[in-house]
Design a protein around this nucleic acid. Structure first.
Lengths: 194, 194, 194, 194
DNA sequence: GATGAATGAGTTTTCATTCAT
DNA sequence: TATGAATGAAAACTCATTCAT
């Protein structure tokens, strides 16, 4: 079983295994043994692709942030009207967040004092940035009325933590629908419409 | 130094030592040796008060949630007018969240699968419950206009994650003021006033 | 088998186990597992007495140097006449060196560039120092004729490396006698007598 | 870069790389990766020329001993008079020993039980053999007076360990001169002259 | 001949937990 | 009640060696 695979795929295998296991058991509780066993490779191979366990976490963080921001950006961009952009943002965010919130928590909070998650550029998380762009553009277009688009974007983004099933108490399909409606109302009201 | 102290105080000593150390170094990086040394007791004594290290974490989680909810409840109750209740809630929450967010992170995210943080009772976190009570009461009194007080409370509570200095990009006193104002506007709009 | 033993004895057990194993297999080839198994203790206990494997090596180095120097000093001091002092020094050194030369090699040369074995005080090894004291005193007493007692002591001490059975080719009891005689002749001639 | 080079050169490259790295970092701390990278070849190729890492060490030990013995032999042979032969032997030995002592240590002491350094032939190290030849020939010629030329050669050779800068305490050019003089006096006296 | 991706046993070290005193 | 010496199962990481290409 010493088959040589393309480096790209090996790396992807390890990322996938890490993602799955970190999600299931948390970063600290997942050993390198777990990861390499799940990826079907030897322990030594891991160190050919990552210098340490922490490197894998970092790579997954990067992957996560890019994916999430791209999803909500595309969903909002597909709508021509401003209120619809907000609703689409919420809906897309709900889907992604629901699926991956746990991964987010697990990836970004496993080490204390190291989660400067979005310390780059304007200091905004990629997702908050997308929402900010929408709010600012809508305000400039005269469609929205919001005093502080930047921090309102941050607050609304934070409110999406509530999409985490562990966060709010209720479950079931109709509960999802209620949550989306409540969030859409919140976002629209935050934008000063309705 | 085999002094017998009241059990209550022993327990409090250990809780205090754990709180301090978990905050400073994270749960995983804090050993029982650290905790018992800081509390000035032997390692064996720890197991007379807690069944495992995890028990201490659970006890601190409980302590944390109760304190936080009580603070915002009292702050809101002190205001007679409904909009002021919301503003007071936000202000008190901001102060508490800012101070203790690190502790929260450290306590609730150190191990996955354990942060069913508020899975008891109605499923609502104590803090979200307080906000829900305000929204529902205000709605019943005809002061608020909100479609889904429960989930709106959950969403607004979640938006307080943005109080985490690591979460939003900006810092400084005037940034704090902006954040509070933006949150108060959001909460009021969520309640259908303004 | 969780018997509590006096710390002194535990430490001595570990030192003895390390000495034996290092001698038998070398420092690098001896694992902590080997050491603790030989000492009949758990791996964890080792770290209650030494901070790392290297600490054990250092402790053994110290033990070794003190013992060796003391032996030859006492042997030489027991003889009143100067030539006899030299012979006694050689004889005692032969016995000790024979037994422990391997240990010496293993302890002092296992790490490159760290063996500043006798960098203290006058820069002389304790053993060379003893020989130097004899040569210098004998010279002062008019019994010896040696131009450079210090470096001659160092050279003679170094010549004792030949006591290592691996160093010279021959073996057997009569070979030992020959080696001692040759060394005693060398030392006396070095001292300018005979 | 799959250039086929003459086997001799490949082998020499690997020996050179090993010599350099072992000297710089010690045998244990030098990985095969280091060696093959330094030699500019693949890891697999190494095993075409040596059966194991240990083989490389053995080959270097051999190289070392032959070189050293040849140097002192030539130096002594160039002198017609017997006392001068001894002095020349010491001088050449000093130079070589000083330069390469570190390499010697690193090669011969990295693993215990392998340094039967000169267990072949007559059991004498090549260097001790050269000195023995000088002493025996000088004795036969009536120039030297020494009871046991063989073991005296071994002892004198061993005394050259003192040429190791780490062995004796003092340093500096005048210290070197003193050491050489002391050694020459010792050798001449060992040979029964002066 | 030559490569280098892959292996996996082995290493040092940590620490939650137990239990004889 | 209270102690702290002792345990031993894990963890992260290394590296000599192999072998399909």
């Amino acid at each position: 079983m010493t088959r040589t695979r393309p480096a790209e795929e090996r790396r992807a295998d390890l990322l996938a295994a890490g993602r799955e296991l970190f999600l299931a058991k948390g970063v600290a509780a997942t050993s390198l043994d777990d990861i390499t066993r799940a990826a079907g490779v030897s322990k030594g191979l891991f160190y050919l692709y990552f210098r340490a366990k922490e490197d894998l976490v970092l790579a997954l963080q990067d992957q996560f942030s890019r994916e999430f921001a791209e999803r909500v950006r595309v969903a909002a961009a597909a709508e021509p009207d401003w209120p619809d952009k907000l609703d689409a943002f919420v809906l897309a965010g709900f889907g992604y967040y629901r699926d991956l919130h746990d991964l987010h928590e697990v990836l970004f909070h496993h080490v204390h004092h190291v989660h400067h998650e979005h310390a780059e550029q304007s200091g905004l998380s990629p997702v908050a940035q997308v929402l900010h762009d929408i709010l600012a553009a809508g305000k400039a277009a005269g469609a929205f009325d919001v005093a502080d688009p930047e921090l309102t974007a941050v607050l609304c983004y934070a409110s999406m933590h509530a999409f985490d099933p562990d966060f709010h108490g209720t479950t079931g399909p109709q509960s999802n629908a209620r949550l989306i409606l409540a969030a859409q109302q919140l976002f629209r009201r935050a934008a000063g419409i309705e």
